[in-house]
Design a protein around this nucleic acid. Structure first.
Lengths: 336, 336
DNA sequence: AAATTTTTTGCAACCGGTTGCAATTTTTTT
DNA sequence: AAAAAAATTGCAACCGGTTGCAAAAAATTT
């Protein structure tokens, strides 16, 4: 069906190698042959088969993108950036939907069978061992949104979750809140754990009173709403730090349904800065995670690893920033 | 690096063909040989290389998924369902991000080079010629969310947009609205055009007064908000039919910012039923597009085409339904 | 113009599988 | 038990490229 190397070679009156070389960069062909080949190729509509090339070179230009959070709007950016950035560099994403199934083995096998050149594991809800499994199998891997570990043996790109938790506590202090609550994402996520640690530590240092603590079952509006309803029993909560914007919006609506005003009676601080956080109906003050930087960096790293597989593991952490909208009181200038 | 057929054959003491056959379903091998081979394969950790297989069989089990709307939450479901459904059937999605670039040629080349077995073009904002280009190139293609055309030469899966527009008009009539407005998505999208046609036709039949008409530049909250601000000049609007939930939410906030109450002073009818439509702050009455059915059907079709490429083109349209929440008045029972 | 160096070219083997075909083995029929 | 039919097996060619190597051609040096 498709035109092959051989046909081009025949038409151009050169060897198959010559044709191959004109389509391989870095290979040596004289200007004359190149011209003949290109003419013949154009006439025939020839494009080299990447499959055949992959077999011969043992490189596929395919990058596995494994994710398990297909329902969070934050992932729209992730998909958009990943795909367009890989595309720009001549690679292609092979999407793997992990939902539910978390045993690494199967996925390592799968991606190995497709001979992907590298893998980006984009999730914080999976143990670090998941990404490591690829490493062990000899597949270059980046753990995006992964957990920072001093003894890293895998590239990690993300944020310092502990520091972000701390930042949340400091923000509450600045705004004059005393009795605060924590409404985290799934308790098993490393990102949640780390933020909790940072938040509690700093809250203690600043003498904030953590009067309630809860976790949403997953990163959804509904889970946030439900978890908040339970927390609401404690009437003294002045502000809530949520582990995710979606959860936060659910929580806000639970609070409003209970007849409380935001931010007058209760304040909210979200996490991620998804598009909806800017919507009037929520106008959420939130901690922005620099998704763009994280993705760009991950792509750069994975492509780098393909070129140089035994580059030593790196940790890249990006700073988060507060995006101030209307769900927290303004900074308290009264002194204290 | 990886274990190959040959090594397994040697260890099992059989020919390479025998090994190949035990890993190809439908091939004939005796129970005895199969056992020997499987044992050797397990011991060696062998998995057949899909690349090599692809080259030999001219089948890759890769399905191109081309999309250009990575910012709409409606696409979260699309990605989730597509990937998991393909996965279930032993295929894999190769994602193509079209953002901006709309000349088919380049993408046909690209997907052809990767020898994808089929392509799903998931967009209503591209001319039908885009999907046709794959068809012409001999690549099985499904145009999901595509436009119904009597003289179809490409599989189309989606909804009857004209009918949905009509449905919107009827809904307004039922609820007792007279002066209505239309706030469509991008004017160039076939889905928008069709909905407008259906809406206007039925509005006329039912003697509704279409007092304003506008189009958002793209499927975003912001575009919706801006477009609505302009429409708002016409003070007589009683209800607005929006071409997309995101646009609709933007429009609602524009209206609220102008001090009008929803649904008392102005009603809204959205389109798609994204998760946020159910959020308390919007509680949007909307026309639900059965994404799940559409995707499942698309996947089934594309896989079907891979097996039987000259299956004749089919149109599959699924019914939309009204999801009644709080952004429209209840049905008017007063008689007219 | 001959000798040397550099560049270009084609040959042939290889990447890791599949598959048509003929030979062999096993099973069924008579 | 022999003959016929069916199932299994291995050989070898093939899928469509790449690449090391030696020969040939071109460019440079003497």
């Amino acid at each position: 069906m498709a035109v092959t190397l051989k046909e081009v070679a025949e038409r151009a009156g050169v060897s198959r190698s010559a044709v191959s070389r004109t389509f391989t960069d870095g290979a040596s062909v004289s200007a004359k042959t190149r011209e003949k080949v290109e003419k013949a190729a154009k006439a025939l509509g020839y494009k080299p088969s990447l499959i055949a090339r992959s077999l011969a070179t043992n490189r596929t230009k395919l990058i596995g993108l494994v994710a398990n959070n297909f329902q969070n709007p934050a992932f729209l950016d992730v998909f958009d950036l990943f795909t367009s950035e890989l595309q720009k560099r001549g690679f292609r994403p092979l999407l793997v939907n992990l939902s539910g199934d978390t045993s690494p083995k199967k996925f390592v096998e799968l991606l190995r069978q497709y001979s992907v050149d590298g893998v980006i594991v984009a999730t914080s809800t999976l143990p670090t061992s998941f990404a490591n499994a690829f490493q062990t199998a000899g597949i270059p891997v980046i753990h995006t949104f992964g957990k920072y570990q001093a003894n890293a043996n895998v590239h990690v790109v993300g944020i310092d979750n502990e520091h972000c938790g701390s930042m949340a506590a400091r923000t509450f202090k600045e705004r004059g809140y005393r009795k605060v609550a924590l409404l985290g994402g799934p308790e098993s996520a490393t990102s949640t754990k780390d933020r909790v640690v940072g938040f509690l530590r700093t809250a203690k240092e600043l003498e904030l009173d953590v009067v309630a603590k809860g976790f949403a079952e997953n990163y959804t509006y509904k889970a946030g709403r439900e978890a908040m309803s339970e927390l609401l029993a404690d009437a003294s909560i002045e502000a809530v730090f949520c582990g995710d914007d979606l959860i936060c919006m659910g929580a806000m609506d639970a609070v409003r349904a209970a007849g409380k005003k935001i931010p007058e009676e209760i304040g909210f601080l979200g996490f991620n800065d998804i598009a909806m956080a800017g919507w009037d109906a929520y106008s959420l003050t939130t901690i922005r995670q620099p998704i763009r930087d994280i993705i760009m960096s991950s792509v750069e790293l994975v492509v780098g690893m393909v070129e140089n597989p035994d580059r030593s593991p790196e940790i890249r952490l990006f700073p988060c920033t507060i995006v101030d909208r209307g769900s927290l009181k303004p900074v308290d200038r009264s002194g204290n």
